[in-house]
């Protein structure tokens, strides 16, 4: 993973350096270049909270950095287009209280399924290269953006554990099994291998250049499909990547 992050930094820095040297008629298309860094905030969450999820015990920040380069081209009046490449992590670390929550844990060909009441920790990392394609509209110093994005995941984990509660094996009338707090007493799961490599979604955002070269930006990105493969039904709800991001941007030229 570290290797991927380092090579991504190198590639993106090289791109930025190249862009800074290129003249404004790069490929004869009149592009303007920028670099950006930021932070993703959000989660992989169902559309509409199911009643089986009762409360959020904890939501911890994960190293959700995002950095990349972008190219902007004015098209007509205030309208323009933007394309970029970003390397980012859409991680999540949360602890939720659940009731009658359907669970199915698969490990080495063995399946443990049932209905869990207690607490569930979910830890997600999704390191990915993202290419956004956006239409832009300038409103004063603010550039509004909207368009689809395409992501390819290079690193993915989706794991966690169910703890301090009880599982009814198979269904609510099945045997009651207590799950404890510590490793060995709780129910661990790992659905990393069932995650998609390719994510497609929609993003909106805005850049505000408060100085000539420097600006701040904010985005909201939402996946069209869940983070897991479509044949994955172990988790009752489809979990969509829903992330906001904030950061700073610098006009390379």
């Amino acid at each position: 993973m570290k290797k991927t992050i380092i090579s991504a930094i190198l590639v993106l820095t090289a791109l930025a350096a190249h862009a800074s040297k290129a003249d404004s008629t790069f490929l004869g298309m009149g592009f303007r270049f920028e670099g950006r860094v930021g932070y993703n905030i959000g989660g992989t969450a169902p559309m509409g909270m199911p009643a089986t999820i009762r409360a959020l015990n904890r939501f911890s920040l994960t190293p959700n950095i995002t950095f990349g380069v972008g190219a902007y081209k004015p098209i007509y009046g205030r309208w323009g287009a933007k394309v970029g490449i970003t390397f980012e992590n859409k991680g999540m670390d949360m602890d939720a209280r659940v009731k009658n929550y359907h669970m199915e844990i698969v490990k080495g060909g063995e399946v443990l399924a049932g209905v869990f009441t207690g607490n569930v920790v979910t830890r997600v990392t999704q390191w990915m290269f993202t290419v956004p394609l956006q239409v832009t509209c300038d409103v004063g110093k603010v550039r509004l953006r909207c368009g689809p994005y395409f992501s390819y995941l290079t690193g993915r984990t989706f794991d966690g554990w169910a703890y301090d509660g009880y599982l009814r094996v198979d269904d609510p009338t099945g045997a009651k099994v207590m799950l404890g707090h510590d490793e060995g007493e709780r129910g661990e799961y790992d659905f990393s291998d069932s995650m998609r490599r390719l994510q497609i979604g929609m993003g909106i955002g805005a850049d505000w250049y408060f100085m000539k070269k420097f600006g701040v930006w904010a985005d909201l990105n939402m996946g069209f499909h869940g983070v897991h493969k479509s044949d994955f039904h172990t988790i009752e709800q489809t979990l969509y990547p829903i992330y906001g991001a904030v950061g700073i941007t610098y006009k390379i030229r």
């Binding site: 993703n40 905030i41 959000g42 989660g43 969450a45 169902p46 559309m47 509409g48 909270m49 199911p50 009643a51 089986t52 999820i53 009762r54 409360a55 959020l56 939501f59 009731k99 009658n100 209905v115 004063g140 110093k141 603010v142 009814r168 609510p172 009338t173 805005a206 850049d207 505000w208 701040v216 930006w217 904010a218 985005d219 909201l220 829903i242 992330y243 906001g244 991001a245 904030v246």
Partner: peptide, 25 residues
């Protein structure tokens, strides 16, 4: 004219549904 942080947490907070009834018998 100020751009501030967009909270992406909207699907998480403020929308917990009523507690489901007990399923055990």
């Amino acid at each position: 004219g100020v751009l501030m942080m967009a909270a992406a947490m909207m699907p998480l907070s403020s929308c917990f549904k009523d507690e489901p009834l007990n399923a055990e018998a």
